[in-house]
């Protein structure tokens, strides 16, 4: 490399980008999509594929406005989000206590651990046929699938977290005079928290996919249903819209719920989750 002090224009541009991104990290997450969307629009405008088969960003935005105006999209979105929230809440409320029990009690661990692994392996979606027979095509089926999906990662990670707390910390709490239940409240739960949140992240990631699948297979509403319904009608635009909305929704869950939780626990304490 030469020692010349002149900098080529591309480097200037790049340095400008890096400085901007350093100052506003959010832009670093958004700007890379600009060339991608431009490329997408370019391919569509070039007419390489039939437009009905491969619509462009403008078509997707138009369909977004249209469906929002009609109120279909907001209603479906609400259905999906509520299902996910209810399922996640139920999964958390049963998963953490169960995880604590299995993590703290040797007998419970010996008896339940293989069963937990096995049921996790069966996978949520494989339950669908049986659930349809039990509950029909409805809300119960979907709720069951989501709770089931969210539950296992939380339980398994809680157990992992509880068992990774150093023995010395139990001893320290004991010797400082803490009774058993206080050790659980003050040592075990905070110590396992980073793992619990990792479990929540995995669980929501899987639960999210399960919800989409369930909505496609048994649904009568929701974003997954919208996409599958669009597929039946051959409307690629609405499928793409659904995919983009799913992606954005996950970003929102990540940025508003998961990331702050992780920041507040693991990173703050210097514990590394996972």
């Amino acid at each position: 490399m030469s020692a010349a002090l002149s900098v080529n224009p591309f480097l200037r541009l790049w340095s400008g980008y890096l400085r901007l991104v350093a100052r506003r990290p959010a832009l670093g997450q958004i700007l890379p999509f600009v060339p991608l969307v431009a490329l997408w629009a370019g391919v569509v405008e070039a007419g390489l594929f039939p437009r009905a088969f491969f619509p462009g960003p403008v078509d997707v935005v138009r369909s977004f406005v249209d469906l929002t105006w009609k109120g279909i999209l907001p209603a479906y979105l609400e259905d999906s989000v509520v299902r996910l929230a209810v399922g996640a809440a139920a999964g958390i409320l049963t998963g953490i206590p169960l995880g604590l029990l299995v993590g703290l009690n040797a007998t419970a661990h010996r008896a339940l651990w293989p069963i937990l692994l096995f049921f996790q392996a069966i996978g949520d979606i494989a339950w669908l046929p049986l659930l349809i027979i039990w509950f029909g095509f409805g809300l119960e089926t979907m709720t069951f699938v989501i709770v089931y999906t969210v539950l296992f990662p939380i339980v398994l990670n809680t157990v992992l977290g509880v068992r990774s707390i150093p023995l010395d910390m139990h001893r320290a709490a004991q010797s400082l005079g803490a009774p058993k239940w206080r050790i659980v409240a003050e040592v075990v739960i905070p110590g396992a928290l980073p793992n619990i949140i990792t479990g929540l992240r995995n669980g929501l990631g899987y639960g999210w996919r399960a919800l989409i699948a369930a909505e496609m297979i048994v649904g009568t509403s929701g974003v997954g249903f919208m996409m599958f319904d669009a597929r039946r009608a051959g409307s690629v635009v609405e499928i793409l819209l659904g995919m983009i909305i799913l992606g954005l929704l996950w970003y929102a869950v990540d940025a508003l719920i998961l990331a702050p939780l992780e920041r507040a626990t693991g990173r703050r304490w210097g514990l590394v989750a996972q």
Partner: peptide, 16 residues
């Protein structure tokens, strides 16, 4: 972004 979407969300468009 794309690993968030990976898998099931592609079923409708893949089948098309």
């Amino acid at each position: 972004f794309f690993s968030v979407l990976a898998g099931i969300a592609w079923i409708p468009i893949a089948t098309l």
